[in-house]
Design a protein around this nucleic acid. Sequence first.
DNA 1: TTAGGGTTAG
Length: 712
Amino acid sequence: MPKKLPFSISPIFTTTQRTNSKCRTTPFTTLIQNPKSSSTSTTSLNFTFLNHLKNQRIDSARAVFNKIPSPHVSLYTKMLLAYAHNNNLSEAINIFHQIPSNTKDTISWNSMIKASIICGDFVTAVKLFDEMPHRNSISWTTIIHGFLSVGRVVEAERFFHAMPYADKDVATWNAMVNGYCNNGRVDDALRLFRQMPSRDVISWTSIIAGLDRNGKSYQALIFLQNMVGFTGVEISSTTLVCGLSAAAKISDFYAGIQIHCCMFKFGYCCGFDAFVSASLVTFYACCKRMDDACRVFGETVCKNVVVWTALLTGYGLNDKHMEALEVFGEMMRFNVVPNESSFTSALNSCVGLEDLEKGRVIHAAGIKMGLENGVYVGNSLVVMYSKCGFIGDALCVFRGIGEKNVVSWNSVIVGCAQHGCGVWALTLFKQMLMEGVESDEITLTGLLSACSRSGMLQKARCFFEYFGQKISLKLTIEHYVCMVDVLGRCGEVEEAEALAMSMPVEANSMVWLVLLSACRVHSNLAVAERAAKRIFEMEPGCSAAYVLLSNLYASSRRWSEVARIRRKMKHNGVVKQPGSSWINLKGLRHEFRSADRSHPLTEKIYEKLEWLGVKLNELGYVPDQKFALHDVEIEQTEEMLSYHSERLAIAFGLLSTSEGSTLTVMKNLRVCGDCHNAIKLVAKIVDREIVVRDSSRFHHFKNGICSCGDYW
DNA sequence: TTAGGGTTAG
């Protein structure tokens, strides 16, 4: 863990403390209690009223408002809007009706429309709009923007088209352009942007931000370039922040640097603008320049939660998960309250470290803050528990999520698939359909992989057809990879090959690799050789394909072919990825290679393995030498199998953890069949659950059996 | 004295 983060922190300037300092109130009440004259009294009441509103003390504001003799219409307006922001529409309407009719002006009518929209009551908003005596462009823009803000584009368009052309000002056009972008209608936004009679800085910023949000970051940067180069419209910090966001998304370092220079030039980089700082931190992080990101962070005076989260996320993006979690801890120490985004990023870093213990600590902090059942934190917790090997906890968190979205359902379905709980995955999908949540391409990937890992071929065929034809989901190459995988694993190797050959897009090396893997399971050398040939044409350095083919030859004891593959690997400079397994204990990762003797507890680990070997023999275990994969003497292969990396990690785990606790081991390659047999028995001997996550899935070993049912 | 349009982290 890093002892010191590479940036300086000025705690006096954190947002929380700045806000608190503002809250120190002046004793205004003394002014009311001792008035010298009627006019002084009214002035004091007005002042106190405004002060209460400013500090969001709505009841106190109302009490003072009631004492003001003949309040000015502007005070009525402020009062009703305050009620709207408190989601109290009936009281806002009450105040509106109290405005004397001779002073009720267009501004108060517009404010009441706005108040209805804030409270989500569009019927009242439209009724007021119809009833008001004089509409101006602000009345129209308010209602158009209101509809767009809740995705009701058709109604917004109806008002926009009904609005007299002469009344449409630049703000109205801007509202439409921005609304189209926010609702994924970027082509309509571009059409209006070209049609509008004049464009100001907000028009340009809207289209730049909109293009960026809709996956057109490169075009956004072109628009920014045109704005600066050809329009003469004065640029704002918001425009530059949007441009920087686009540069960050496509990691365009050159464009981002130019924008940073502009920010300097216009004086936006003095450290007081959190938007500028957060966008700079993110930009440098996306360009893999964490030193620069840290420098910007250190120079930021106004460090709010977004700036902190930008740094935390940036470290995560760069696989510096320990540093990310250190930032999370630091922000808490500086009284910056983490929000859902901070938790999401911190939990992602726990996944990156595969560190369940840290994940549980962050989960506890989330519970304290009441964020556990929110959809963002809940989804991240589901992923964290699932990827750290605890699918039961993932399901528990999932059930608690208040309003589940498609990501929640996908996360839990994919989690069940990875843990081999295929039936659960399918049951959850049924519930998802019943709750009316629309599935997407990730749902199908999750379902197909659940079927693949549980041998449910017919179900997979149904899903593939249902998603492809009935709900017209565009099938991606990922889906074909899954379908070839499930066909192959279920023994339909020829059909899998036929599907790979007949795909609407050309199969990539991943498709052929899963087919080759299935050939390894079902010992189909003919298809394997054809699949391997395809892979070597596309990816000559694919070590996994060489290893799979070599293993296939080895399991058939065709040692001359094994030697040929090895020579070919050597000739092409392909290096086999060494197998390694690791276990995380108290924040430390203990990693082992096959026959490793570098760990400080090596002697004890090998003693434990010998003891386990004796117990295994007593239970009738005989090493399966087809997994030795080397042309060596039988005695030697037995020894090599006994010291595979996962066995060393398990032996170490047994020595270092309390009896009865679940042991979780990670492996970079697939666990071999012989180790799989041995670990089933080891779990029985030591009477513990052993979870092994290999490159394919999670295996839960308990009482002599594995959750995968020997099917993986 | 009160009303409308653009922004950062995930």
